[in-house]
Design a binder for these strands. Structure first.
Length: 878
RNA sequence: GGGUGUGUAGCUCAGUUGGUUAGAGCAUUACGUUCACAUCGUAGGGGUCACAGGUUCGAGUCCUGUCACACCCACCA
């Protein structure tokens, strides 16, 4: 017995536990069928599930469940990411609350603390994924820092190093002064701000009263200036080229060089060059062999190369200006709109800083990664993201992979006493190599840097499947079938996976990349903690059930568009679940079940043929749309069928039969009801796994679990009965409409006469009369050949004139108005038909079928208009 | 500066190769608890598809331009 009310809390947890305990998420490795696999974009191990995950993982689960039901050997590989900076930040914050810094603990102790934190809070997001219904094979859960994956990381690193694709270099990098580490370009966000432009002048050496005028937004960097650049195409200033300027305060003599970086149109036309603290200046410095003067400490305070050692940049800036003013060199300060780089995580200003870092030769690795997409081996859905991918990949810069953090994969690099680098997968090998190199036992020092988190995520597609070991899973499931992710990590992750996989595996990591949009709030703003507009998906799951949230995500997911979360809409899909629940209860109450040996090809009744055909059409549509990753179309197809066709029409139409005496008809209808409900459960299961399973388990004895039930093949629906039933449905709507317009109480049983019925209508009427009477709430419905009297309200339906006798209660004025409205509506259509058909071009050049259809409509409209006019005529004088 | 999108009902959005009277959900109006369901039903109102041109027999759909908005990349001394 089904409960009276749909209450997802009662069964979601229980059903999930059963799946997991029964191993339903594990692929059947003995099966001979095609493999299908997805690797989950690993969430931050210490994170909590947000709306973006809910979308991403719902879509993946739909794809996974669909393919599982297709009978494939399916693996959804789960796992989590150690998320270097993010995790270290959280743990440091916790420590800070106890007044402890990571330096107090020391590296080893700190890492221990992080691991403890991971054990403590690391399970949250996976538990939440379970509540969402994600059918991951949890027995294979991996973590980017577990032993296997760490081994993969070391192996890849060594391989890249030995191939010359990883190198150490002293370069300008984005320096995050809060975490005191380098970060990659992608981890820097540019923010528009209104800053200030400072104008001042440097004296020219040996030329009293001569100056070169400078403009800068960062005056304090002048202590690192090693040149001034001027374009040789700058007529006003080029006479200064070749002379020397004097950096005030520190009184350093620097050359004035010719360089096209100095745009005569911008600023003063002369640019101070600070090669150690500006990316453009760095290049200028290279061109002119300028010295590099580092003026910053790791925490972004100024160093001893400046007069303001130990002070932060803001203070130093103020003091610099004061000093310049004292010297009479300051000219003006203007407001200046500018873009300032900030650390994505730390929120502090990023300083370009000259440091030793490790780089991956991304331009080289990108080549194969680009080719694989060009050839179509890897396909992006929607296609337009390929452009974004190409654009970035073709202009890719070396990837700075070293981080001066503690939490992460320590580089497998050891230095000998003289600084010689040994790159090996483990310390013993490095030691052996070093001993051999030096011809004696030496002491090695390990590189302290760790790797960018995305280095290990880049290996995810194969490392999780067991690489570098040769495993059955790697064999079976690599390359994976599809990667589902948001476009915001196309560079961070998708591109890196492509590069790493092409390099290591010589094969693509996935055949397709499905990219979805971002989740936004009701106003369409990005959700973010700082705005306080986040919605916790688990709260929606609590309120409406996981199925409702999942269906919402699927129904809203149209390619290339962001999703605004509207709670009312989630509630709406909960209502859909309720509707379905009640439909199943209706079936239960009416003993709907499929007897042994029931086959749809033996169905006799038109109404049953009709609903089966519609169900097949709907499942075809769902299949087609799922194959094309059109989630909203797939979801809507089953929604429309389930609610609009099955509940609204079929159930209502069969009631007279189920409550009637014709036992054969009843038996067939009960069976068909059960068949259709099963079909809905099957096709809806990927979207709403919980309610469908609960209903599946409670509506019949089952030999197979719904999660493994067979997905319907593409079918050719038998449409032989469709026209008849559609006729009845249309007639019911027409009569209901007329009743409503006449303001007739719903309880009043009425008689309706049909005039001018053709043979088809007469035949259909014989079959459907009881149904029509029930649904349109009629006492009597019959063909009528008598006179039309003035107290009969009438309308037209196809060839029929529909008469509704209302003795003595007709409001003639209102009726005249109604008829006139209907006629006016027809006139509007007639006008458009006449226009088209009157156009010789249309008649000659449009396909014959289109022209014929247009003619048919015109004829019908004309006929209907004539009837309505006659009716109007009849009551003209009342 | 370079690139990519978006603009359709009060709101949030569908509309696949151009072809009925442009759809859905929510909101709204009227009526209604008929024994699957008020987490509901029936019926209705509501749109010159941003604007201007063009191609075509025919344009929400294709092309060009304009306006507005969003995002991405690069950079502004």
């Amino acid at each position: 017995m089904l409960e009276k009310n749909y209450n997802p809390k009662e069964f979601e947890e229980k059903i999930y536990a059963d799946w997991e305990e029964s191993g339903d998420f594990k692929p059947d490795m003995r099966a001979k069928t095609e493999a299908f696999s997805v690797v989950i974009p690993p969430p931050n191990v210490t994170g909590v599930l947000h709306m973006g995950h809910a979308l991403d993982d719902t879509l993946q689960d739909i794809v996974i469940r669909y393919n599982r039901m297709l009978g494939k050997k399916v693996l959804w590989q789960p796992g989590t990411d150690h998320a270097g900076i993010a995790t270290q930040m959280v743990v440091e914050r916790n420590l800070a609350a106890q007044g402890v810094s990571r330096h107090d603990l020391g590296r080893e102790k700190f890492i221990e603390t992080v691991w403890k934190w991971k054990e403590q809070s690391g399970g949250t997001i996976c538990r939440q994924l379970r509540r969402l219904g994600a059918s991951c094979d949890w027995s294979r859960e991996r973590f980017t820092m577990d032993d296997g994956l760490s081994r993969a990381v070391r192996k890849v690193f060594v391989s890249l190093y030995k191939d010359g694709l990883i190198y150490k270099a002293k370069r300008l990098v984005n320096w995050d002064s809060k975490f005191m580490t380098a970060v990659s370009d992608l981890e820097v966000v540019q923010k528009e701000t209104v800053g200030k432009m400072y104008y001042y002048k440097y004296p020219i050496e040996n030329e009293d009263g001569e100056f070169v005028h400078i403009a800068t937004t960062r005056p304090e960097t002048m202590f690192g200036d090693t040149a001034v650049a001027i374009s040789k195409n700058n007529p006003k200033l080029k006479h200064l080229i070749g002379k020397n300027a004097i950096v005030p305060i520190v009184n350093r003599v620097i050359p004035i060089v010719a360089d096209e970086h100095a745009d005569p149109e911008k600023g003063t036309g002369a640019v101070k060059i600070t090669p150690a603290h500006d990316f453009n200046d760095f290049e200028v410095g290279r061109r002119h062999n300028l010295p590099l003067i580092n003026i910053l400490n790791e925490d972004a305070t100024l160093n001893e190369n400046t007069p303001f050692a130990g002070l932060d940049t803001q203070t130093a800036r103020r003091l610099t200006i004061e000093k310049l003013e004292e010297l009479g060199l300051m000219e003006k300060i203007e407001e200046h709109p500018m873009v300032v780089p900030y650390g994505e995580r730390s929120g502090v200003v990023i300083e370009p800083m000259l440091t030793d870092q490790w780089f991956v030769d991304a331009p080289t690795l990108a080549k194969e990664a680009i080719r694989a997409v060009e050839t179509g081996e890897v396909e992006f859905v929607p296609k337009l993201y390929e452009k974004t991918y190409f654009e970035w990949m073709r202009n890719i810069q070396p990837w700075c992979i070293s981080r001066q953090l503690w939490w992460g994969h320590q580089l497998p690099i050891w230095y000998g006493p003289d600084g010689t680098v040994f790159c090996e997968e483990n310390e013993a090998d490095a030691q052996a190599a070093a001993d051999k190199h030096y011809g004696q036992k030496v002491e090695l020092r390990r590189e302290t840097d760790v790797l960018d988190t995305w280095f290990s995520s880049g290996l995810w597609a194969f490392s999780t499947l067991g690489w570098p070991d040769k495993t059955e899973f790697l064999d079976t499931f690599y390359p994976t079938s599809v990667l589902v992710t948001g476009f915001d990590i196309i560079f961070f992750w998708v591109a890196r996976m492509m590069m790493m996989s092409m390099y290591i595996m010589k094969k693509i990591p996935f055949r397709k990349v499905y990219m979805h949009g971002l989740i936004r709030d009701e106003q369409g703003r990005k959700m973010s903690k700082s705005k306080g507009n986040t919605i916790d998906p688990m709260i929606l799951v609590d309120k409406y059930g996981a199925d409702a949230l999942r269906f919402f995500m699927a129904a809203m997911e149209t390619q290339g568009r962001d999703i605004s979360v509207k709670e009312a809409r989630v509630a709406g899909y909960r209502n859909f679940a309720t509707k379905l629940w009640n439909a199943a209860r209706f079936g239960e109450m009416n003993q709907c079940a499929m007897p042994q040996g029931f086959e749809i090809k033996n169905i006799k009744l038109a109404i049953n043929k009709w609903i089966v055909a519609k169900a097949q059409q709907a499942s075809n549509e769902v299949t087609l749309n799922l194959n094309n990753y059109r989630f909203s179309d797939a979801a809507n197809a089953i929604y429309q069928f389930g609610w609009g066709t099955f509940c609204d029409w079929y159930i209502e139409l069969i009631k007279p039969m189920l409550y009637g005496e014709d036992e054969a008809a009843k038996a067939e209808t009960r069976a068909v009801f059960a068949w259709v409900l099963d079909r809905i459960l099957v096709v809806l299961h990927p979207f709403m796994p919980f309610i469908t399973t609960e209903l599946w388990n409670n509506t019949a004895q089952r030999t197979v679990k719904l999660i493994h039930a067979a997905w319907p093949q593409q079918e050719t629906p038998d449409m032989s009965a469709a026209a008849e039933v559609d006729w009845a449905v249309g007639l019911i709507s027409t009569i209901r409409s007329l009743r409503a317009e006449m303001n007739l109480p719903i309880g009043a049983k009425l008689n309706v006469f049909l005039k001018e019925a053709n043979a088809t209508s007469v035949k259909a009427l014989q079959t459907f009369c009881p149904m029509i009477c029930t649904l349109a709430r009629l006492d009597k419905l019959e063909v009528y050949d008598g006179e039309v009297s003035s107290d009969m309200v009438q309308t037209v339906y196809r060839e029929l004139t529909v008469l509704l006798p209302l003795k003595g209660v007709v409001d003639f004025a209102a009726e005249r108005e109604r008829l006139s409205r209907e006629i006016a509506a027809l006139d509007r259509h007639l006008e458009s038909y006449a226009q088209k058909l009157g156009n010789p071009g249309f008649v000659e050049r449009a396909p014959a079928a289109v022209v014929e259809e247009e003619k048919r409509r015109q004829a019908e409209a004309l006929e209907n208009k004539a009837k309505l006019q006659a009716a109007l005529q009849r009551i003209a004088n009342f």
